[in-house]
Amino acid sequence: MTDMQEAILAALDGPLLIAGLVFLRLGAVMALLPAFGERAVPARIRLALALAFTAIVAPAVEARIAPPGGTVAAYVLFLMAETANGLALGLVVRLFLLALEMAGGIAAQSGSLSQMFGVQGEPMPAMAHLFVMSALCLAVLSGLHVRAAGAMILSYEALPAGTVPGAALLKSWTVGQMSQAFALAFSLAAPFVVAALLYNVALGVINRAMPSLMVAFVGAPALTAGALVMLAVAAPLMLGLWKGAFDAILADPFAVPR
């Protein structure tokens, strides 16, 4: 082996190992990251994106990663910890897309649109699909790749390489983020739920006053039409509120909501 080959191997040994360790965490994040981790994205594209993010993040966090030494068991534990940290970060970010999906499902159920416009083979009604696809486009156009890279770099401060947070801290963090996502979902769908409730109460009063009138045949089309009109009016506002919450979670994904 020539001196040049020895120098190249010596130069690649450290950075290559660091990049591999970073790739473990980022690969787990990319599996759940909205837009980049969707099932519609081919696996080769997702792999290329994970490698691209690794090339960006690895130089920034190289000083914070100390490769494990000693036995093979130490390496295995290190790799498992990095994968778990990546999955935890990806899951928290993914929760906010699931919150929008849940809001679309609640709104569709309130407006009697979930059965009429249901998409064959998909668990979401068409309204939820509209919200999710619009949110993904909005997030990508507003620089999701930059914010995601920043969150990945920040993760090495909150979740040091090779370590897993304690059970109590992990429970408070995940439960807090889940409760925040559920609250966001119900807040976004609240106009549809309130409007549907008031409308059905009014139909009940009309039915009591005029028992011979078939309120179901009269009220169902009006409820559906009203839900579509409300969708056209409220969708931009809902997406704006969701984008604000999504930007906040990417800016500080490790905050524990109270």
Results as ranks from 00 to 15, higher is better:
G20V: 03
A216E: 15
A190P: 00
M124P: 01
R208V: 13
G166H: 08
V175I: 11
V218Q: 08
G118F: 08
A151S: 13
L239E: 00
L136V: 15
A88W: 01
N200H: 12
P257R: 05
L141I: 12
L136E: 15
A234F: 13
A222I: 13
A168C: 03
A222K: 06
A40W: 06
G150N: 12
P165E: 05
L250M: 15
L239V: 01
F78S: 01
F53Y: 10
P191H: 08
P59G: 02
R46G: 02
M124K: 13
M238D: 02
P253V: 01
G118K: 09
A135Y: 02
M230L: 15
G244E: 14
T174M: 15
I56C: 05
Q5D: 09
D247I: 01
P125W: 04
L95E: 04
L24F: 02
L95F: 13
G162S: 08
L130E: 06
M116F: 04
V256Q: 02
F131Q: 12
F186A: 08
R25A: 02
H145P: 02
A183F: 05
G150W: 00
L77W: 11
A235T: 11
P67H: 05
L223R: 11
S110G: 07
L91M: 11
L138Q: 13
A185H: 04
L9M: 10
V41E: 05
D13A: 15
A40M: 10
F192M: 09
V215W: 07
R258C: 10
L89T: 03
L170I: 01
S155P: 00
N200C: 09
A222N: 08
A158T: 10
G14L: 11
V194D: 05
A248N: 04
P15R: 09
F186V: 12
V164P: 02
P123F: 06
P67T: 06
P68H: 06
P253D: 08
L32A: 11
L231Q: 10
L141H: 12
A81L: 04
A48M: 14
W242R: 03
L87G: 07
M210H: 10
Y75N: 11
M214Y: 10
V76N: 10
P67I: 08
L98F: 09
G150I: 00
L223M: 13
G69C: 02
L77Y: 09
H129Y: 12
